[in-house]
Structure formats: structure tokens, C-alpha cells
Write a protein that binds this DNA or RNA. Structure first.
Lengths: 347, 347
DNA sequence: CGCGCAGATACAAACGTTTACGAATCCTGC
DNA sequence: GCAGGATTCGTAAACGTTTGTATCTGCGCG
């Protein structure tokens, strides 16, 4: 006979049908060894039959957990219409999958730097921990990170290891990446390499890339030319403007290292518009290896950050924090990916 | 004097401090008119002081809500390593913002078509409703959508309005989009237009684009040439292969309409590799206007779907469903965006 | 035969809200 | 001075779990 269908079955309904107590149902569904195998299976069957799923609110209330991690994405632009940096967006898939493997859901939340962050995610028991993602303005981060720490919130940051904030991080060895980029350009015979990107202390990651860049130049016996350094925030349009400015300044250069792919792509467009050909006249190297990088023409040579590894590292670590295991900040090695835009392809 | 700090304050703690009952605290925090303005403000102050936030689990348990909507993203490729279509990914930002405006959080979940969907999102009270996003294989959707309906789940689908599935949709007038693309290519003098994309019944959206394409040809007195139609699923690599196949077939063509931007970008790469120049030798038009489209070289002429409007429509509708308001499926008008890849730029 | 013990299950107390209901207070007008 | 309505607040009962503790079997063994 068809077991009576209940609209929104509870564990008590299952219990009644199985002829056991509600507590036993709860234990059975969590596969507790305390309940006999046969009854456990019977209960599972009935639950499936009735389309029963445990009420996460009730379970969470009891256990003080949500099995959810909140992903806070920052857009550096601030506009209400702002696009999220595709580099971080592409990390989202890996994060979500890694979280799912560990039994966690992912809550996303776009944050403006100006916002009051949703520091209440954990306090309200909506999430067990946070992951912060974005090329942030660390100066304005600081106090907010302090607030997170003060509230005893568990969080992981994508970014550089900084003494100031108390949080754990997963990041990329930006200095080494900048070094690789410059060394490569030098190795293929480029002499005058321009740098495009913001290097103020509010973006330590970009500053580190620049430091590596300078280091490579100096190792080769060159000194960086201030005329070949143009500030640009991380937007395609600003990359375009920076390159245009560089061209119009009349400075001579035969290569461009852009601090992100987004800037590099804007720069390439500007160079084309100015009648310069990439890579014949100017070599271009970016940073990030976002999905787009391989598909622009010419395909962009860039410093790859392994976002999959990064995503999995972030998830592993935040889960570690949640489960009170010791967690170390990690630094990942970037890798130069040579494509067309630098002109190094011998074949 | 500093009010005693409680580790994880509850509404009862606030009540004690304020000298009122816990119920009053609850009411005050939800701005009920039942509590006097002064006490309400006092309670708010104390709550802020103590860093108190209502426990969402408890509240949700009581109200049977979660104030969360789950976003299910499908990747058409199936691989564990698969990238999500950037077109949908870029919708995510708008969805998240629109949801936040309405007081909802967004839970994301990547789904393989093969997966057992998380139909339990609503049953487990983790989400109040679902949004389904992706160029799906509708044949395999069907039974799962039926399951959703059967479970009385509220959901919105991005896609074509189909009789079969019970759900409400927000979609784009794909047929009209295909028509616009073809008409434009004809209007600039192209004669033999190839079509790249999958048109099986399992992807009704692409079929509709093709139908519009054919319609435009016929309106111009032409009949579509089967030799100029190549199947391709929605991946850059497959677009590359399709275009290559087209070239190698020896068929003559002077334009390509690709059913998505992703395919178009792959096709452009193949054309370049084959020594054909875009747009001089071949005009290319895509579909979607994903962020990348404007930045490839040559910039891609494409049919734009207004993802912002779409995202907001989806959110409005799912919130409508949740709040038991009447909801209509909607069809949005696409718009041709002319860039370089079709060669129509007079200036 | 009784005792202890182990395995399986039941009982019941939380978890922190929301909200129906009732009680207290205050005002207003007669 | 008091009925009666408005305003404000407290009481208590849910919501559906998880889990510590008690209970109940049956069985082996002294």
C-alpha cells in the first residue's frame, strides 16, 4: 500500500511510519552506529519514499553550524554596475566544487569596499567561515579585517601574507611572478620594458610584482626608467588609457609588462590603435592567466596563477579553521605561460 | 560602565540588559510597531553594542524561511574541470546584487547534468527558491524539472518558454536574434553565410536561433545551404574545430553566424589559422555579447542579451513566486551590437 | 537465580527565535 | 469614577532537530 504522503514530512513522521522514536530516526539518518543496521536501512528507505530531507534550520540551530561558507567578492571599481574581475569569477567554480566535496555550501556576496561588510555572516550562523576574494585596497581593508578578528570570525584571504591583518591567506608569489615576466622579456632581447599598473601600498600584490620586475632588470644590469612606469587600476579601459598615455609621452619602449591581464588586454588594444603591432613592435606580458588570456589575438603571454589549486587551498584552509585544525598561510608558485603576445615563439 | 560582554549573545541577553522580555527584543529588532519607539531604539543600541545578530537558523526554523535563493549553474561540458560559461558567470553579479536588494542571500551550486540535482534545497529549507542557469540539454532536464514541480519547489529557469516543463522562465527571443544576425550579414552584402552550432531538439534555444537565421535567408529569397551548417557544442575548442572543418570541406562562404560567442571566438581563431582574414574575407557574428566579446581582436559583432535585465527579471520573479504573487514568463528582446568582426564599420 | 553487561531504543531537554494571546497600563469622554 | 478602547508589554507555545541519559531487552556467568 502506498504510505501516506505527508506534505512536509518531519523526522517524527518518519518515526511514526517506521515504528520507532524520532530520536532513532535522527540517529539513523546520520548513520550512527547506535542503531541497528536493519532499522537504519528501513528508515532510510522510508525517508526516501516520503522525500524527506532534514531541516537545515533545525539541525543548524541545534548544532550551531550551517555547513556553509560565505564567499565575499570585492569589485575594485565601486560602481553599482561593476563587473567582477573575471579572474576571480573563474575561481568561483573551483571553490564551489571543492566546498561541495567537503560538504559545504557556498554563499556569495558582492561587496563594495565602501560597504559595511557582512561581518555578521558568522555571528548570525549563516556561514561557518568566510573567504575573501579580490584585489583589495588593503588600506581600507585593515580596520574591517580587525573587526572580523575581533568578532572571532574564521576567514581566509586570497592575497599576500601581511603582518597587519590577523587572517590566514593563500596567495601567489607575486614578486617571483614579476621577476619571471621581466626576465623572459629580457631573454628574448627586449631592452626597454614598460610597466603598467598601480603600485601604491594599498595594493601590495601589485607592488610585489613590480618589485620582482625591478629585481630582474637590476640583475641584468639595467635600471628601471621612471618614464616607462604608468599607473593604472585594474580595468580594461584604464589599461587602454595607460598604454595610450605611454605612447603619447614619446617614451621609447619595446615591451610592456602589465600587472594584470585585464590591463594587458586594454593596453594591447591601445597599441594596435596607435599603429604598433604586437608582438612585432612591442612584446606584451600580463599576469593572472584568466580564461580570456588564451583567446585574445594575439594570445597573451602571462604569468599564471593556478586558480584551481588556489581555490582548493582556500577551501581546505577555511574548513580546517572551522574544524579547529592548525592552518598555515601558503604561497603558491606562479608560472610563466608563453603565448604569442611576447613574440618568443620560435616555431 | 561597560556593559558586560557576552560571547555569543542571544536575544535573551539583550532582553536582560534592556530590562524587557525577550519577546519584546524580537519585536523591536524587527521594527514592530507594537513596541514603543524609545524602547525600540534602546534595544537596537544594546544589540549593536553587544554585536548581536539574530540567529538565522532559529529564525528560519520558526518562520519556515531562509531568505536565500539557490543558484544552480550547469556546465554543458560535464568534465570535473569544466569552466562555467562566462556568459552565465557574468550574470551572477547582477543576480547577487538584485537578490541583496530584495533581502535575499544567494547560494551557488554547480550542477552536472548527470548529477542528482539538489532538489532538496527547498525541502531542507536551505533556500526558498531556485534559479536554474545554463544552456541546458533539455531532454535530460525534463524529468528533473518534473521532479521539482512535483516537490512543489519554486524555481525560475533561464531559457526558452517550453510547454513541457511546468516552470516559469525568463528568456531571450532567440529566433528574433538569429534573424537580426542574418539580416545584418545580408545587408552588408554577404551572400553565403555559414551557421555554426548545435541545433538538436535538446538545445531549443540554439534551434530557435537557427530558425530565425533561416527565416532571414528565406525572406531574402535564399535557401540555406546544408553544406554551410556545422554542428558544434558550446566550447571554444569545438568552435575552432567546426570552422576548421568548414574550411577543409572546401565549401565557399563569406560569413559565419556562430550560435554563441564562445563558438564564434573559436571559429575566428580557426579562420585566422587557415589564412582567412576577419572581417575582410569572412564576416563573423556571434550571440550573447559576453564580456570577452568586445575585447577579442577583431572585436566581435554579436547579438546582445541584456544580462542585467535578465538577472533582475529572474530575481524579481523568483521572489514573486516565493511571496506567492502571480508571475509571468517573460521574453526579452535581443539587440545586435555591431563591432569589427563583421566588417560593417563605415567609419 | 540474580547480577551485570551490552546493544538497541525511547525520553526529554535543549538550541534561539517568532507570534498568538492575554494582561497591564494609560487615556478619553461621559 | 468608570467603561472601554488603544497602546505596550510579558507569557508561553511552537518550529524540527541533536544528543545525553534512562530504559528495556536478552544473555552469559558466577
Amino acid at each position: 500500500m502506498c504510505p501516506l504522503k505527508v506534505a512536509n514530512p518531519t523526522s517524527r513522521d518518519i518515526a511514526d511510519l517506521a515504528g520507532v522514536s524520532q530520536a532513532t530516526v535522527s540517529r539513523a539518518l546520520r548513520n550512527s552506529p547506535l542503531v541497528r543496521k536493519e532499522t537504519r536501512e528501513r528508515i532510510h528507505e522510508i525517508a526516501k519514499e516520503l522525500n524527506y530531507f532534514v531541516n537545515r534550520n533545525a539541525a543548524g540551530l541545534r548544532t550551531h553550524q550551517s555547513n556553509t561558507i560565505a564567499l565575499l567578492l570585492f569589485d575594485e571599481t565601486g560602481g553599482a554596475d561593476a563587473q567582477i574581475n573575471p579572474f576571480f569569477l573563474s575561481m568561483l567554480g573551483y571553490i564551489s566544487r571543492a566546498a561541495a566535496r567537503r560538504g559545504y555550501d557556498v554563499l556569495i556576496s558582492l561587496q563594495q569596499l565602501s560597504d559595511d561588510w557582512h561581518i555578521e555572516y558568522q555571528a548570525s550562523h549563516r556561514a561557518d567561515g568566510l573567504i575573501l576574494l579580490g584585489y583589495g585596497n588593503y588600506l581600507s581593508y585593515r580596520e574591517k579585517l580587525a573587526a572580523l578578528s575581533a568578532a572571532n570570525t574564521r576567514f581566509m584571504i586570497w592575497g599576500p601574507i601581511l603582518r597587519e591583518h590577523g587572517g590566514h591567506t593563500v596567495g601567489c608569489d607575486n614578486e617571483n611572478g614579476g621577476f619571471q615576466a621581466a626576465r623572459h622579456l629580457l631573454s628574448i632581447g627586449r631592452e626597454r620594458i614598460a610597466f603598467l599598473g598601480q603600485t601604491s601600498p594599498r595594493s601590495p600584490e601589485f607592488s610585489a610584482r613590480y618589485a620582482g620586475f625591478v629585481d630582474a632588470l637590476q640583475s641584468a644590469g639595467k635600471t628601471p626608467d621612471p618614464a616607462l612606469k604608468v599607473d593604472a587600476d585594474n580595468l580594461e579601459e584604464l589599461g587602454y588609457q595607460a598604454a595610450r598615455q605611454l605612447v603619447e609621452s614619446g617614451a621609447e619602449f619595446d615591451a610592456v609588462f602589465a600587472v594584470t591581464d585585464v590591463i594587458a588586454i586594454g593596453a594591447m588594444r591601445a597599441l594596435e590603435d596607435a599603429g604598433l603591432r604586437v608582438p612585432r613592435d612591442v612584446s606584451v606580458v600580463g599576469f593572472d592567466d584568466m580564461p580570456l588570456a588564451a583567446h585574445v589575438t594575439p594570445a597573451l603571454t602571462t604569468v599564471r596563477q593556478d586558480i584551481r589549486l588556489a581555490a582548493e587551498g582556500l577551501v581546505e584552509s577555511i574548513v580546517g579553521l572551522i574544524e579547529e585544525e592548525p592552518v598555515e598561510s601558503t604561497l603558491m608558485a606562479p608560472k610563466l605561460v608563453v603565448r604569442q603576445s611576447c613574440g618568443a615563439h620560435a616555431q
